[in-house]
Design a protein around this nucleic acid. Structure first.
Lengths: 181, 181
DNA sequence: AGCGCTATATATCAATCCGATATAAATATA
DNA sequence: TATATTTATATCGGATTGATATATAGCGCT
């Protein structure tokens, strides 16, 4: 699946500028399981415009930089539906943290501790972001299913990290110490 | 983190050819959280050889294609340790399945069902691969921690998928039907 | 008022990396 | 004996990233 399909999917939900598409894959409902950079989004929009899969209108709110708001066209919806029906590639997961963790015995203990806490904080941020998103999802929607998937996986990761502190030789968290009293 | 660092990490565990490095990120203990293609591994090895971070010896087992077995050097270990101490990038997770699932109402029900079962089968394959790997890991090692992380996350994903069959309008699995009797 | 910081917004580009493909010999399978 | 799979190296076009440039507005701080 390429960036064009990704953009079509986002535009099928609502009109957006390139900037807003980028925000969507960073914070919005498309976050956590897809990604794209400006360097691929803008060329994709330009190309799809040439192909008639999207249309543009320029909105210039006074005081803000002018926005190019893209809308999906009929041809765009057709292309999206076609792209959605090819068999999905395998998930891809990359974690530099886990790579570092593999070499924990060669790591400066301070760095290991920092990396661990940073990872845990990151996982918690992701989870709370998803939990916030949940309210906007209608029951039974695809959005709801994907949201629940993210929650299930992130909670499992957070729980496992918490339970692994001791075995990595890391100090117990403040929260865990308080709970033990 | 680039492919060079990745290769150094693998070579720090044991000598390997480009082909074996690729297998390592596909099936071995480095699978599931990193990735690299031949198109990046071979150039990386060539470059690191020029930089003195690895050395080669040609092994030609009669009957098999000749192998270029790479070993990490002292300079390579230094470079690896340095690279391991930069702060880790955020995890990256990409799932075309979840993208498709978002649009489930626009999907051919047959395609949705197929995609769902394929994803579940994929998750189960990954899990059993990790479980097999566990035996080779020493207790308290980084390998063990990473292995447990993968198991925790995959089990959560599989459980969630199983529990979501009904809400996606999919038929119950044979296993679930048998369990209910 | 001036300063830096953040947010909005588009755009480009070198470096990197992927995915597909070519080549080739041996071995397992039918 | 034909065929598919495994082992093994290598290349390359095209896709993508990550960083950066540009510009305006608002907000907090001293």
């Amino acid at each position: 699946m390429n960036v064009r399909t990704l953009c079509l999917g986002i535009l099928a939900q609502e009109d957006a500028s390139g900037y807003e598409i980028k925000k969507s894959v960073e914070e919005g409902m498309f976050a956590h399981f897809i990604d794209a950079s400006y360097g691929s989004i803008y060329p994709a929009l330009t190309q799809m415009l040439a192909d008639g899969q999207v249309s543009v209108r320029e909105e210039s709110h006074p005081g803000k930089p002018p926005k190019k708001v893209y809308s999906i066209t009929g041809a765009g919806r057709t292309a999206l539906r076609k792209a959605l029906h090819v068999s999905a590639r395998q998930d891809k997961f990359k974690s530099e943290f886990l790579f570092q963790a593999l070499f924990k015995d060669d790591l400066d203990p301070v760095h290991l501790a920092e990396a661990f806490e940073e990872q845990l904080a990151y996982l918690r941020r992701e989870l709370s972001q998803i939990e916030e998103c949940r309210e906007q999802a209608e029951p039974g929607s695809g959005h709801m299913f994907v949201n629940g998937y993210g929650q299930a996986v992130l909670r499992a990761a957070i729980d496992y990290m918490e339970q692994s502190r001791a075995s990595l030789g890391l100090p117990q968290s403040t929260a865990a110490r308080n709970a033990a009293e």
